[in-house]
C-alpha cells in the first residue's frame, strides 16, 4: 500500500487530477461541515439567487454532525455520516466549484457523473472513528445556521485528517473495484 498523499484546500484542478480511487489522503487546512438540513438551506439560497455563507470554489464539505463539546473542548466526537442522504443536493454544489466531499457509503450515479463532469472527488473517512477524527480538528467555528445545532455549518481547521479516495474524476470507484477484488464465488 502506497504512502498517503497530502492535500490542502482550496484544491486546484491539478490536485484533483492527481487523486485515484483507493489512494489514502491526509488533509490539512479548512473543511466546511454540512448535513441534510444545512444542504437544504444552501439549495434554497441558490434557488432565490442569494449568496452562500461561504465560497465553494476549491473547497471540501465534510458530512458530519458532531456530539456537543464538553467544557474546554473545541468540538465533540466527529465521524462521517452517510453521504447518500446528500446526493440530491450535491451536483448543484459541484457545479459551483466544490472540489471534494467527505462522508461514508455509496454515492448515486448522478453524483458520480457530476464529479466526472466538474472534476471533483468523493472521499470516505472511517465511519464510527469519531473520537480519533476529533483529534485532527484544531479549530471549529459555527459560520451559519446555529439553530440547527449539530447540523449547523462549521468551519473546521484540521491537521492530517485521514480519508480514502472512493470516486476519482476518471470514473474509478473503490466500492466497485475493492469489492470485485475480494468477492469469492
Amino acid at each position: 500500500m502506497s504512502e498517503p498523499k497530502r492535500i490542502s484546500p482550496p484544491l486546484s484542478e491539478g490536485d484533483v487530477e492527481g487523486l485515484r480511487a483507493g489512494d489514502r489522503v491526509l488533509i490539512t487546512g479548512v473543511l466546511y461541515t454540512a448535513r441534510d438540513a444545512a444542504h437544504k438551506r444552501l439549495i434554497d439560497l441558490l434557488d432565490r439567487g442569494e449568496e452562500l455563507p461561504f465560497d465553494l470554489k476549491g473547497q471540501i464539505i465534510y458530512y458530519v454532525g458532531p456530539t456537543p463539546p464538553r467544557p474546554g473542548e473545541i468540538i465533540g466526537s466527529a465521524g462521517p455520516t452517510t453521504s447518500g442522504r446528500m446526493d440530491a443536493y450535491t451536483p448543484r454544489l459541484l457545479e459551483l466549484g466544490l472540489k471534494a466531499t467527505i462522508g461514508k457509503g455509496q454515492r448515486s450515479d448522478e453524483v458520480v457523473e457530476a464529479m466526472k463532469r466538474y472534476k471533483a472527488v468523493y472521499l470516505a473517512a472511517v465511519g464510527g472513528a469519531a473520537a480519533l477524527i476529533k483529534k485532527c480538528i484544531k479549530k471549529a467555528e459555527v459560520i451559519a445556521y446555529e439553530d440547527l445545532g449539530p447540523e449547523a455549518i462549521r468551519r473546521l481547521e484540521v491537521e492530517e485528517f485521514p480519508a480514502i479516495v472512493v470516486n476519482d474524476i476518471y470514473g474509478g470507484d473503490l466500492f466497485k473495484s475493492g469489492v470485485e477484488e475480494y468477492r469469492r464465488g
Binding site: 472512493v166 473503490l174 475493492g178 470485485e180
Partner: peptide
C-alpha cells in the same frame, strides 16, 4: 464474508 465488501466497503474478507 464471501461478498467482498470488507471494512467500510473498501473491499475485503
Amino acid at each position: 464474508n464471501r461478498l467482498g465488501i470488507g471494512p467500510m466497503g473498501f473491499g475485503g474478507t
